[in-house]
Amino acid sequence: MTTTPWKFTAKEIVEKPELFTSGHRACAGCGPAIALRQIMKATRGPTIVTSATGCMEVVSTIYPYTAWKVPFIHTAFENVAANASGIEAALKVMKRKGRLEHENVDVIAFAGDGGTFDIGIQALSGAAERGHDFLYILYDNEAYMNTGIQRSGGTPHGASTTTSPAGRVIPGKPQYKKPIADIMVAHDIPYVATASISSWQDLLVKTRKGLEIEGPAFMHVFTPCPRGWRYDPSKTIEIARLGVETCIFPLWETIDGEYSLSPQSKILALKPERKKKVTEYLKMQRRFRHLFKPEFKHVIDEIQQMVDKRWNRLLKRCNMTQASQS
């Protein structure tokens, strides 16, 4: 990467125009809406946005209204990376033929966890392999929230959703979350990052990097959902922060496949005593409430074990070792 780090102040960002505007109909306290707004503040010039079917597409473009100040297209659920491929191909050929007014146009594809982990992974994998120049943003609220909280490949172990309900026998989703960002790293694309709406500077910097880098960039953004996770809407950022602090959702990036921890997670590697227990995170959300019954307590242990296992694996990838694991 040849770019110089982007520096900015809160005031500069606040003063930038809103490209994803008020009047969208996301629920109060919506995590993904925060992510989209901030990401659009990190754009560097002419930008075209495409979105998969999902919460953010629905709430931002209820006909005849649109919350987008940039060109926007939605076509279907499973194909947003193919939309981006087509847009980027058109930009390339129009530039070659002298029909593009702008020197550069960035392409951003938004999709939720359903449109990415599950139904959209084929189109995403194909677009990544072909090397289209675009930034793919996965806003992960860990279930199909738009259609009423059905489980996805991004739903964490033990979470109760309407298709993985906590029953008398089965305590929520039996499977673990698919490591989607690592899967994208395995595509050997130039840039992959995880980000959280609890660290807005990090989110903006990574967005800008993803846009500046040539070729496919993928960013997995942690975006809690008050409705689906069952917590008070005021806690959206707080829960996102706890996700990072418990290492349930560590922040990192890969540049040309080289992993490095981002500051908010790096501090936890250097000072492991600051790494919080998963229970602190789980207890705030009623989607995990059943796990606190005596008969399902073991699931919390399983979650902690998996979080630790994945965290340690990440540390190895970042050439760091955990000093002491509590």
């Binding site: 809160a10 005031k11 960002i13 606040v14 003063e15 809103e18 994803f20 505007t21 008020s22 009047g23 969208h24 996301a26 629920c27 109060a28 306290g29 919506c30 995590g31 809406a33 925060i34 707004r37 901030q38 709406i197 807005w200 008050p226 809407p233 005021s234 959206t236 950022i237």
Partner: peptide, 27 residues
């Protein structure tokens, strides 16, 4: 920066924050 609804506006001229209750959903 973190308002999901861009309802907290920064008035550059007088350097003040303005809460836009037309859009604030009260989260």
């Amino acid at each position: 920066l973190i308002c999901p609804d861009s309802a907290i506006k920064w008035n550059q001229a007088n350097e003040e924050l303005m809460f836009d209750y037309d859009f604030c959903k009260g989260c």
